[in-house]
Design a protein around this nucleic acid. Structure first.
Length: 428
RNA sequence: GUGGGCAUAGCUCAGCUGGUUAGAGCGCCAGGUUGUGGUCCUGGAGGUCGCGGGUUCGAACCCCGUUGCUCACCCCA
């Protein structure tokens, strides 16, 4: 042991190691291919931005901007923040590059928020998501939600609930907020302790409050979906009809107020009913028709969706506790000769897309076979002095039980076809 | 920002009202079989009992502090 002090990952962050990282690869790979099915292309943005991108983007009064951002100054005293979510960065890059709309992109990114960690909540978590800018067509809302739905299903999640709502737009929301504010002001002594003080900062947040006091007050107050203007009402009804046509089950939740200020019209959230912890939202999103303008671009509508990878994996684990892992290599080379020809053999097999591993440090055959077994490989390729001198390889079937047919001798130049044949036969 | 629980081997954990060389299972390494894994048997390595202080003849155990982990509130993914 060294006497140097050691380090561990910062609070609220985690190392993802094999074999668990295989699940990450699966989630990201699947998401990428589903996104391509819907015409989205990959966008890669910096993980830090001028702090203004997020302050203006997600709203200075949001909890995230007020107290959860990782803000820092670099050596030239510029003020930056680690991205707390994906959308604002993507919109910033849309404004900067001015691509031809509709611009449909997907991303996979870490996201940083300074919060106390707990089950399903971390200081660095990871999100995958899509953004589509340049059209207010409600068909796009349907596609984005349907894409998320399809992604969850193909990932293996069945116990997912979808809630949708409309937040109104610049025409009708200010009026609604005003009437809600009036209602809250009149009933303010009946609100929960916190919202008695803070309701006027962002009255919509009170709708999201889980205390019975606030629920009682808001229940008898004005409802968002009753005060939508005709355009918003029509948009919302088109989206929900579309979801029903696609047989995607949804429920309307007029209390669904998401945490960022930029949302307009459609908002939605997916929760996993398999998750027992308090953090059961696995993804969500909505329309943000004012955000591009807010970040200095031409007025451009947009809609997006984001999902937390950690929560996806938690939900998957909750639904499939004993999911088995596919072996990650095909054949394990057991070599007791140390001859260069073995290195050449492995090179040849890998070139032919056979996944090969070996053990190191000149261990005994018994010990190497033990490692071969543990590796999950179906085949062991034994090469000792005898095989070497005869130009043969002993191919041992590690997953066969019948002792009499457990291994065969294969000429060196037939080994590749023999391996391929065996693997294709067991893989189906 | 607030509150609860927990820190003993790589992992999961035992360790009695404080008592002498700190344990188990799994994992790892080796041997039993000098060319054969997954079963079995034997042996081995691996711990300043999170860290610092205090009480005591004596502390993994009691007290205080501290750090970390964890769960919940708030909010979110």
């Amino acid at each position: 042991m060294s006497n140097k002090r050691s380090f561990s990952a910062p609070v609220g962050t985690h190392d993802v190691l094999p074999p668990q990282s295989l699940e990450w690869e699966r989630a990201i790979g699947l998401f990428s291919s589903v996104a391509h099915l819907y015409g989205f292309g990959l966008v890669i943005n910096p993980i830090f931005e001028d702090v203004g991108v997020f302050n203006r983007g997600i709203g200075e009064n949001s909890d995230v901007a007020k107290k959860e951002m990782y803000v820092f100054q670099d050596r030239s005293d510029r003020k930056y923040a680690l991205r707390p979510e994906g959308t604002a960065s993507v919109v910033r890059s849309y404004v900067q590059h001015n691509p031809t709309p509709p611009w449909k992109v997907f991303y996979v990114t870490p996201a940083f928020r300074y919060e106390r960690p707990q089950a399903g909540r971390y200081r660095q978590h990871h999100q995958l998501g899509v953004e589509a800018l340049g059209t207010a067509d409600p068909n796009l809302d349907i596609e984005v939600i349907a894409m998320a739905w399809r992604f969850y299903a193909s990932f293996g999640l069945r116990r997912v609930d979808l809630m949708v709502n409309s937040m109104g737009d610049a025409a009708c929301r200010p009026q609604y907020i005003e009437s809600l504010n009036e209602h809250l002001r009149a009933k303010s002594p009946k609100l929960c302790d916190e919202h008695q003080r803070t309701f006027s900062d962002n009255p919509l947040r009170v709708l999201d409050c889980k205390t019975s006091a606030c629920i009682e007050v808001t229940q008898c107050g004005p409802m968002l979906n009753d005060s939508l203007c005709d355009e918003c009402r029509e948009h919302f009804s088109f989206v929900t009809q579309g979801l029903s046509m696609l047989k995607i089950p949804w429920t309307s939740n007029s209390r669904l107020v998401r945490g960022f200020d930029y949302y307009t019209r459609t908002t939605f959230e997916f929760t996993s009913t398999a998750l027992e912890s308090a953090q059961n939202a696995i993804g969500g999103g909505g329309r943000y028709d004012g955000l591009v303008e807010e970040l200095g671009g031409e007025a451009t509508p947009g809609i997006g969706f984001g999902s937390g990878i950690e929560r996806l994996l938690l939900a998957h684990q909750a639904e499939h506790p004993a999911a088995s892992e596919a072996p990650s290599i095909d054949a394990f080379v057991v070599d007791t000769t140390g001859d260069f020809s073995v290195q050449v053999l492995m090179d040849e097999l890998r070139t032919a897309n056979i996944r090969i591993d070996q053990s190191y440090d000149g261990r005994s055959m018994k010990s190497q076979l033990k490692v071969a077994d543990r590796s999950g490989a179906r085949l062991a390729l034994l090469i000792g002095p005898q095989e070497l001198s005869r130009g043969e390889i002993t191919m041992r079937y590690l997953r066969e039980n019948d002792e009499s047919s457990r291994q065969i001798s294969v000429p060196r130049d037939k080994i590749l076809s023999e391996i391929k044949q065996y693997l294709s036969q067991v893989k189906q």
